[in-house]
Amino acid sequence: MAGYTTVFGSLDNYEKGRVIIVDDDPKAYVFSNIFEVASMSKPYEKVAVGKNLEYVLETIRCEGTSEWRVTPHDEFALVMDGTVVVELLDPSGQLVDPDANGSIGLDGEPAGTRMGRITASRGHQALLPAGKCYRFHCDAVGVILLQTIEGPDTIYRWAEICQTEA
């Protein structure tokens, strides 16, 4: 008897579902696809694909090396496609208000102590710890789904990425 084939998506191979309306507005379901969003994004843009009050899910297209960022709270990077290297650094001083929301970009490489490095592929989830700095690197093209809070660099493109018509 044949086994099962598990279907994952990727930038090169995804099939988007849809909302079939009976009596509603399709925009109520904010329906998008992570790979489609990443295919339309510039490297390291943080495009929201989910929003629950202040909390967001961001799709990030990883290509080359990102800027360094610092996060005031824990964030979590789930690699959905490709292989992404996460570098972590403990800054020598406080670079972000711990009560703030969302990560902020930094100019250049911050001073501090190297904490370690994570090489993550599809399905791997990495902790981006509160108060610390990180940057991503991807030799080819990868996709991250980031669990975080709305910040100054969160981008909203709902009308472009979501199903709007029945």
């Binding site: 086994g3 099962y4 598990t6 789930l78 904490m115 370690g116 399905g123 990495a126 902790l127 610390k132």
Partner: peptide
Amino acid sequence: GFADVPQDEPIVEVEPGYEGDVAAYNLF
């Protein structure tokens, strides 16, 4: 139903003293 799902783990390289903050695993 998931016999074909890769069972690899991320490569986690941790500097001493940061074991509690450098972490990753295979969610799938």
